[in-house]
Amino acid sequence: MSLLEIKNAKLKIDDKDILKGLSLTVNKGEVHAIMGPNGSGKSTLSYMLAGRDGYELESGEVFLEGKSLSEMEADERARSGLFLAFQYPVELPGVGGMSFLREAVNSRRKFLGEEELDHLAFVKEARKVASKMFVKDEMLKRAVNVGFSGGEKKRFEILQMAMLKPKISILDETDSGLDVDALKIVSDGVNAQRNDDNAIVVITHYQRLLDYIVPDFVHILSDGSIIKSGGPELALEVEKNGYAGLINAA
């Protein structure tokens, strides 16, 4: 059974067709990259998968480990192991990073039938993971994403991913707003979590992220559907010829 299966997904926003029959299969242990120009439907795809209000499918279906997502709310999908690293992480004034993380982790643990972590055990675990991500303790004490730099926000996203241990992670333009050093730290964080039991979908505009997070498959998204799939070499083709060449050829 595949981990994530998108079958002929169609979605409208304000009467405009955004996804026009998108299909994708992701198996355990795989990293997929979805590349596409602006307006091709990349962010819509990630919101649709995560179950955001207003992004319900018009037709088609999505399965997570064989289970249809259509009846599942966003929080249930998250607890089931679907993680979205936001392109623009949201500020939560007054909400401490550590408390937020703990609530999130314990929601997932409860769902999995695991014991919830008490404060001490949690802090210990969070610090361990944070130090690997070069996230300082001080950042965990601050309010979630408030006053964070672009790099800090993305590192905090990946830290959450590491703590939540999702089955499938969708990284939405995680490279945007990052300089080379930050890009490397974030990519290392993601790579450290790759294993045979999970999968990652990297959504990106540029090829450069894929130098650091090397995908097994690359898909070109254009005008609401995948027009071409291939190996890592496809990303290099985009880098060389731009999207226009590929889209015209398709």
């Binding site: 998250a78 936001f86 949201v90 929601s107």
Partner: peptide
């Protein structure tokens, strides 16, 4: 949505 996506109801 950010909170829901992290599994909070």
């Amino acid at each position: 949505f950010y909170c829901l996506q992290r599994g909070l109801d």
